[in-house]
């Protein structure tokens, strides 16, 4: 505790303030409470179908692949086709997300679907994203019982389903949705923004895909009916 007091005392000394200055406190409390938005790039600010097109482009710019599906029932075939195209076994793992349970996996008779977190042994995982951001092709994943964080990072191939209606133009809209769901200043243990597959530029500054996280990222957008 001694260090805590010393640090605060020194900050206040340098700033020449007593710390109990009411106006400063009001300013800080107001900013936290109102959380004003900064400058939001125009790039993602488009109406529905156009926004989906921006998202498709930014996802591809981030070196992920993307398919747009008519409805949820098309997911199993799209997952099977992806695995086949990468010469992978017909096997995926996903969490307890109800939206994933409602997908008719049995339609793909050879596709093996297991549930739970990853221990590093799985080659491909499927997650359902909470939201996405058109501005940068970013998926927003919340941790919890439904979509284990390890499924985002350990398998070589990460397949992510996102509903078209959940594709926002900007990050700020997604923060508001998280506030709506969890309360004013609450967060799940982890929010993962994922923009493309894992990569590294540490060997002679050339960007190589497949560092520690997934080597490839495949996005499946389910259109709103």
């Amino acid at each position: 505790m001694k260090s805590r007091e010393a640090i605060f005392a020194n900050i206040r000394k340098s700033l020449r303030t007593g710390g109990e200055d009411g106006k400063r406190r009001e300013t800080v409390a107001a900013r936290i409470e109102k959380h004003p938005r900064g400058i939001i790039p125009a790039r993602g600010q488009k109406a529905d179908r156009e926004r989906l097109e921006v998202f498709r482009q930014t996802v591809e710019d981030a070196k992920a692949s993307i398919v747009i599906l008519g409805n949820k029932d098309d997911v199993p075939a799209a997952v099977a086709a992806y695995l086949r195209s990468k010469n992978l076994p017909q096997s995926v793992r996903h969490g307890e997300d109800e939206r994933l349970s409602l997908i008719p996996w049995a339609k793909e008779r050879t596709l093996e679907v297991t549930k739970g977190a990853s221990d590093g042994a799985q080659l491909a995982s499927v997650s359902y994203s909470f939201a996405a951001v058109a501005e940068s092709g970013t998926l927003v994943m919340l941790s919890g019982a439904d979509n284990p964080t390890t499924l985002n990072f350990l398998p070589d191939h990460h397949l992510v389903v996102v509903d078209e209606k959940d594709i926002a133009g900007d990050y700020e809209s997604v923060w508001d949705r998280i506030r709506e769901r969890l309360g004013a200043n609450k967060m799940p243990r982890v929010v993962n923004w994922i923009t493309g597959p894992s990569r590294s530029g540490d060997i002679e500054q050339t960007h190589l895909l497949g560092a520690h996280g997934p080597r490839s990222l495949h996005v499946l957008v389910v259109r709103s009916s």
């Binding site: 981030a62 969490g95 941790s143 284990p148 964080t149 243990r189 993962n192 923009t195 493309g196 597959p197």
Partner: peptide
């Protein structure tokens, strides 16, 4: 820094594993 719109992984961590979390 690197010319990407955003880094591949931007991670917001808040506290430890919650009740019901399968990992973390």
């Amino acid at each position: 820094a690197s010319g990407l719109d955003l880094s591949v992984y931007t991670t917001f961590s808040t506290g430890a594993r919650r009740a019901g979390d399968p990992d973390g």
